[in-house]
């Protein structure tokens, strides 16, 4: 397994956010992490990338234990985290955002090639490389956030609600691009509230509720599951 979470718990102050979460992502696999608002999806990603401390459990990435590693060391292992709400660097140009994305030593030597790759996947970013990121549309900023994550040359790309706030057309484009990135061999951990859309992209998924994994399985199984249908698919 590339990524393995074993009984991970984390809290904000004294308020527990996730409890005993165990999930796995294989090499080159696309896995979904689904659930309603406040279920603990973002917290799980933040625990993996080191932004939130674990109160219990362990995380291993390709055999390396991530416990107590600082975020900048974790990214060096090849875990890119595209955070919720895009969070591009607003006062920097598109190109500068991408360059900062390859700041880590693992990515810096490959910067020129990664830029070419990202501009190839997102031609829109190439057209706007001098524009300040903060002045771009929501959809463009989402592309930039994903592109910036790719600049790390990640082995695992974690995406936190990439469709958030996007028009349906833009959501389609974004999912196509993620598909394209996955085809290049990058493992994907996709957090989504848009469950039906997510299940078309990932092979397997976990469903979180109140900080716990309440269901897991192949996408097709989940899509046909009565509970999932009523709770998340509005069927």
């Amino acid at each position: 397994m590339l990524l393995e979470l074993d009984g991970v718990s984390a809290s904000y102050g004294s308020v527990p956010a996730i409890g005993r979460v165990s999930i796995m992502v294989g090499e080159g696999e696309a896995v979904g992490l689904l659930g309603a608002n406040g279920a603990g999806k973002s917290t799980t990603l933040r625990a993996i990338s080191g932004l939130v401390r674990l109160s219990a459990g362990s995380i291993t990435f390709d055999g390396t234990r991530l416990a107590a590693m600082a975020p900048h060391k974790i990214s060096e292992l090849g875990i890119a985290h595209v955070p919720e709400g895009r969070q591009v660097f607003p006062e920097m140009s598109v190109q500068e955002n991408l360059e900062v994305g390859s700041y880590a030593p693992r990515a810096k030597p490959e910067r020129a090639r990664s830029l070419e790759l990202v501009y190839g996947i997102f031609p829109r970013l190439a057209e706007r490389r001098r524009q300040l990121a903060g002045t771009m549309s929501g959809g463009e900023q989402q592309m930039l956030a994903v592109g910036r994550g790719l600049m790390l040359k990640p082995r695992l790309l974690m995406l936190d609600e990439p469709s958030l706030g996007l028009a349906p057309v833009m959501t389609d484009v974004t999912f196509e691009k993620i598909q394209e990135i996955h085809k290049l061999g990058t493992a994907i951990l996709l957090v989504e509230q848009n469950v039906s859309r997510a299940l078309t992209l990932v092979a397997r998924a976990y469903v979180l509720e109140s900080g716990r994994v309440i269901m897991q399985g192949k996408s097709a199984e989940l899509a046909n599951n009565k509970d999932v249908q009523t709770a998340y698919l509005g069927i």
Partner: peptide
Amino acid sequence: QNRDVAMLMG
């Protein structure tokens, strides 16, 4: 501009 995200970039 964004300390947490900067850490995610290494």
